[in-house]
Design a protein around this nucleic acid. Structure first.
Lengths: 147, 147
DNA sequence: ACCACTTGCATAGCCCGCTATACAACTGAT
DNA sequence: ATCAGTTGTATAGCGGGCTATGCAAGTGGT
């Protein structure tokens, strides 16, 4: 029974993700941002005023994780949470001006990081790479529909 | 300036890594293992009695992270730490019997998880996928050698 | 109108990763 | 032999992910 971590998709995925995360962390630190806020910001830059529920659905993040992330974002002045008018449970998330102003530099930082990390691949390989990851993410384990 | 998270290598890498991690977590939970211990165990199953330093070098993990992981492993009865005979600073890490016995089921769990998540890929795609991730991991950002 | 159920969010507690810092043990140059 | 520098670990403190749990606000069936 042989097993090499450097042939294991799971191990490699984790390793690669840590590398990307460290790179992006360094690039957006000057902006006062951290990686965990990035996905939420991307959605909110697109459509402001989403509820927490909508954010978790769009990002495949657990509700509790999102609640914590939003709490940090509020603490850091990136968002404000306002009760929804029609549903007293829901909180709508609104970007502050400073968060809106961070959009362009933050996205530029992410694009630079991606470009640098993929610099060793040909254009064709880059496309394949993205497509393969998307395919893996979409692959649902059997039995998910049960119960 | 458009930016789609579903076309961003960094975002996809993170997402995929979380999926793998959740799957493996569930599979090895019955064994009393967690994902963070896995890389260390793989090295120790191969060569027992490594120092902490050697482990961090082999795994591209920060020293502090490894120290914490080893502390948990010791707490959970997977390893014992013994002072090196020749160097009073170094701690050699030795597997317990129970950790040795977990090797086969743990590796089987990882292989099953990998196989399931890659089930949507052809054999050729799997090879490409692994090779591309390895290539991205190996790509060093420019300027690393400076200073 | 009530009550059971569902839904949206917050909190507690843990694992795992990081940076920054401290400190004891070794090493080398003098 | 000493002392400055290096090296191996540990610790503090944080971000970010997860599960489990609790609770207030909505909803539907009677």
């Amino acid at each position: 029974m042989t097993f090499s971590k450097d042939q294991s998709a799971g191990y490699l995925a984790n390793h690669m993700a840590r590398i990307f995360a460290q790179g992006l962390t360094a690039r957006i630190k000057p902006l006062g941002l951290t990686t965990g806020t990035f996905p939420a910001l991307l959605e909110l830059w697109e459509t402001d005023g989403l509820t927490q529920k909508q954010l978790t659905e769009r990002l495949d993040i657990e509700q509790a994780t999102m609640a914590n992330t939003l709490a940090r974002m509020e603490r850091d002045g990136l968002i404000v949470r306002k009760k929804d008018a029609n549903d007293g449970r829901a909180q709508r998330i609104w970007l502050t001006d400073s968060a809106r102003n961070l959009r362009d530099p933050a996205i530029a930082a992410a694009q630079e990081e991606n470009a640098m990390r993929l610099a060793g691949l040909t254009e064709d390989e880059k496309r394949q790479f993205i497509a393969l990851i998307q395919k893996v993410i979409k692959t649902k384990p059997p039995g998910t529909a049960r119960r």
